[in-house]
Design a protein around this nucleic acid. Structure first.
Length: 452
RNA sequence: GGUCCGGUGGCAGAAUGGUGAUGUAGCGGACUGCAAAUCCGCGAAUGUGGGUUCGAUUCCCGCCCGGACCUCCA
């Protein structure tokens, strides 16, 4: 039996409003997220989408008995082909290495793995089946070695992203391929030359277009209708619009995704993150400067639908906040209790993580004042955000090292000096440790230390 | 050019048609041999110009600024 939880409301991109979430099957909630194209290290913008999904899925698991979370790996893409060529590397080795790095980075960030993580290249047959079906029922056609989706055949094209197909044509800034019947038509299958990865198909050796993989994998693992489909807001158009068109045309009886969740982009020091500005940050770049948990807290500090400004100062802030939270946990025993209502309620309001964090601050204050029940609630509430599950000792001191004994020795020496009222000596020892990045705190139970 | 989203204290960031959270930073005090941590207190914000309203930061319109997307490309 699940504990009763506040009813979740979610902002659905298609309806453009926040609505109560009602699962198709309350016994089994199904979620699909677009995962990475594995040609390079994940950056903190990618991370934001993964983190949004993580908080969403954690909440769903709290509220419903069973959740299946599918997040794919896109391991066939022209960016991958290009990068492999630049590196003089095998495509397979590039995608495998990048996938492993992705997994390591997310594990470091305490992002839980999906239940199923299908790869595009393992689902080529599924994609071809969908494409054949679309041709059969008149939603796709072959032209110049390509198979294209016919936008005109799907009246509600544009409904997800709120676009009028007419506008799209008028504003198109890319030359329209002459073999398209309609400028809005997009590729389902394209021919590959000898250099490019390709698979045999009824339409010749080729490779899939960008969008069909998600239609194929979501169908295979979640069926014709599932609850939530998510990703970054930049995927709304054309990627998700096209996925929706393909899937609904293949399976007109199904609903495809019932709710669409899109997270906003982030800025770096007030500027758009881009390679040309040189402010492109991978997860690994950030983890050289601060603990993963600080980055996680920083990213959860803004609501997922708001543009978030990532800054160095913000990263340091997040660290100090975690110092305070862990101090509250370290101040005494931490009983195991259920997540506090206030935190659950905040998250139920379209995953309002900043509000949930504000509630955690209240609990931290109470815990520091001696309320151990509040400390338990702090830990349980933070757990819903994937925070504060580490040992406080580890947070403050890092992994135990042989250096620790030396630190303890200096602290003992300082204690002796203090006892002898030789404060000059005591302060010198403290300064020495300070220089090594060790901060001392004298408490009534003796001196404790932490790394700055 | 088109469509859409947003502009809240130094910084980050909630909320709301009727006294604007929270954190961090700053300042003052308590505690401390001095610090650190903790506690108490203080100051500090709704881009701009109109409109609707008894009342607007919230709703509407213009402007300025930022961002996303505009079809094989996050």
């Amino acid at each position: 039996m699940q504990t009763p939880v506040a009813a979740l409301s979610l902002h659905d991109s298609q309806r453009r409003m926040t609505v109560p979430f009602t699962p198709l099957d309350p016994e089994h909630v199904k979620v699909y997220y677009c995962g990475p194209t594995v040609y390079d290290l994940a950056h903190i913008g990618n991370l934001r989408a993964m983190l949004t999904a993580d908080v969403l899925v954690r909440f769903l698991r709290h509220a419903y008995p069973r959740v299946t979370f599918v997040r794919n790996i896109t391991d066939v893409d022209d960016k991958i082909t290009a990068r492999a060529r630049e590196n003089g590397e095998d495509i397979a080795s590039l995608t495998q290495r990048t996938t492993e790095e992705f997994h390591q980075d997310l594990a470091a960030m305490n992002v839980l793995p999906p239940d199923i993580e299908p790869r595009a290249t393992h689902n080529i047959g599924e994609m071809q089946a969908l494409i054949a079906r679309l041709i059969e029922n008149g939603h796709a056609y072959e032209a110049a070695g390509h198979v294209l989706f016919s936008v005109a055949s799907f009246p509600s094209y544009g409904a997800l992203s709120g676009r009028d197909p007419e506008d799209l044509v008028a504003g198109a800034r890319v030359d329209v391929a002459t073999y398209k019947k309609d400028p809005g038509d997009f590729v389902l299958w394209k021919p590959s030359d000898a250099e490019q990865p390709g698979w045999e198909s009824p339409w010749g050796r080729g490779r899939p277009g960008w969008h069909i993989e998600c239609s194929a994998m979501s169908h295979r693992y979640l069926g014709e209708s599932f609850d939530i489909h998510g990703g970054g807001s930049d995927l709304l158009f054309p990627h998700h619009e096209n996925e929706r068109a393909q899937s609904l045309c293949c399976f007109p009886q199904g609903k495809f995704a019932n709710y669409w969740v899109h997270n906003a982009m982030l800025l770096v020091e007030g500027e758009k993150m881009s390679k040309s500005l040189g402010n492109f940050l991978t997860i690994r770049d950030v983890l050289k400067q601060a603990p993963a948990e600080a980055l996680r807290l920083l990213l959860l500090g803004a609501h997922y639908r708001s543009t978030l400004n990532y800054t160095q100062a913000g990263l340091q802030d997040a660290r100090k906040v975690l110092d305070r939270f862990y101090r509250a946990l370290a101040a005494g025993p931490v009983p195991e209790v259920a997540p506090p209502e206030a935190v659950v309620m905040a998250l139920a309001e379209d995953l309002n993580t900043p509000k949930a964090l504000a509630e955690l601050h209240v609990l931290a204050g109470q815990a520091l004042a001696g309320d151990r029940e509040a400390a338990g609630a702090l830990k349980a509430g933070a757990g819903m955000l994937g925070l504060l599950q580490d040992d406080p000792e580890k947070w403050f001191k890092g992994d135990a090292s042989e250096e620790d004994a030396a630190i303890d020795a200096l602290i003992a020496e300082r204690a002796a000096a203090k006892k002898a009222r030789d404060f000059a000596r005591a302060d010198a020892l403290r300064d020495q440790l300070q220089g090594q990045g060790i901060v001392l705190e004298d408490t009534k139970d003796g001196t404790i230390w932490r790394r700055a």
